[in-house]
Design a protein around this nucleic acid. Structure first.
Lengths: 257, 257
DNA sequence: TCACGCCTTCCATTGAGTGGAAGAACCCCG
DNA sequence: CGGGGTTCTTCCACTCAATGGAAGGCGTGA
């Protein structure tokens, strides 16, 4: 190669993937220059890689000249086993839940130290929410997150409780308090949050079990909890049991959500 | 390089993408050997590429040793502008529609000569349906497809009407008949199908407009149309107008679905 | 034990990838 | 209208990362 030698150990594949990795929720549109900067690659190299990616459909170019993730990648991404069965099976139950409560409904799984949101139903006039499908939020500050954390392996809990990041003024950042809450979650079989992730938003969540193993969490977001916590928990548990039952009746696929 | 020289003109990037392209709806799990065969690459080459892809999270390996699309690709795929605003905005209206009709509800856009399903709400006991989110079905045999085709550019209509593929015994394959139906769709502002895609399933669909331009189609699938076609059309149009209004109030992003 | 299919590692060879540089295209502003 | 900025595209000599046949593991079933 010419001039500066690229750091050894980088493969072309990894570079191409680095270009894709430049996109995230806050950067859905990037110029070529921005792509090069964010993926730490020389401009000319980026240009060549991008040409290949666009040619295949992994990226697309907007009329304004910006690059975005292409439809083909969207297609292929949907083939991931993440949701294949779970989202599919859960979908009608989420609607039921939405119909019964008219609140925003969430389905999430644990991905490392984050709650990964697989599906969301949002009403017209629900509480404003940060999460979208595919987004990740910290385990300790969300309802579904607390449920997932409460039933996670010990080492995950330990890591998550090490340094809980503050999100709002009400986020619980004391490991001790959190640990007590998790005990409570296992005891009651549901978790709550009160403005710990977004101001003005409270949440209730319950575990979804497939044959005794917690595979997901089901939650709803409401403006306040005082009035009808019991009703919400009941509705959630009915739905969660329904999902669990439907899951264990599925053919195979133990792909870890 | 060694031995046989790979066909010139192939870039590493394209090869890596060829590996990804080996996956489709009927092949969500593949062994290394199968990947090599389906992407027409030597086994050793595939092995190396796959290692990179797995390392990054584009692919994952199941406990059984098969490869599947990884979660990170799912993530990134969701950033595609395909749905960004449309699905998000339409979601509550789809719920409303589902609540009002209890039928399976579809949101689709046109992608070339196919209807691309962006979202779907399915009830517990609806008619069995073939479509899933991300799937493509022919324009001439589906309700949403007929709507999208009716409002598509002339050259698209011409191509689509050239040789309409037969799907069921009731699929309309006569270009003349189809063209007359499309006229009717533009006149009535809704389309129907009667077992043209799946036996036992009929559908009604209406266009979704953003500032007079048809950007999507909204449809529902029911066992039969005789009883309450008028009611369904009314419900669909209310929802479609709502979506359209919400869309035109959005900030920017004219990214073509 | 052998045979078969699938996976992994090795390594000499070389062409695909590299990236600085030059220039084109396109702003915006005075 | 011309100059200074930013972003995009093309070029090309150099060379290292990619290549893939072959050989060796590993598991499984006969």
């Amino acid at each position: 190669m010419a001039g500066h030698v690229s750091a050894p150990g980088t493969s072309v594949t990894r570079r191409a993937l680095a270009v894709l990795a430049a996109f995230d929720e806050d950067h859905r549109e990037l110029t070529l220059t921005a792509l090069a900067r964010r993926s730490a690659l020389p401009l000319a190299t980026t240009h060549r890689l991008v040409a290949d990616l666009v040619g295949w459909g992994a990226l697309a170019r907007t009329p304004s000249g910006h690059y975005v993730i292409g439809r083909r990648l969207w297609d292929i991404g949907l083939l991931a086993p993440v949701q294949a069965d779970l989202v599919e099976v859960a979908s009608p139950f989420l609607h039921d839940l939405y119909g019964a409560t008219l609140a925003t409904v969430h389905l999430a799984v644990r991905d490392g130290l984050d709650a990964l949101y697989l599906d969301r139903l949002r009403g017209h006039a629900s509480v404003p929410i940060v999460s979208t499908v595919g987004s990740r939020l910290p385990l300790h500050a969300t309802g579904v997150g607390k449920v997932l954390l409460a039933f996670a392996p010990a080492e995950v809990q330990q890591q998550a409780l090490e340094d809980p990041r503050r999100v709002t003024a009400y986020t619980i950042t004391q490991p001790g308090t959190l640990r007590r809450q998790l005990d409570r979650v296992r005891q009651d079989d549901y978790a709550t949050t009160v403005e710990e992730m977004s101001l003005g938003a409270c949440s209730v969540a319950v575990p979804v079990r497939r044959d005794d193993e917690v595979v997901a969490a089901l939650g709803i977001v409401v403006p306040g909890l005082t009035r009808d916590r019991a009703r919400l928990v009941a509705a959630l548990q009915v739905a969660a049991h329904g999902i669990g039952r439907a899951l264990s009746q599925l053919p195979t696929s133990g792909s870890p959500g």
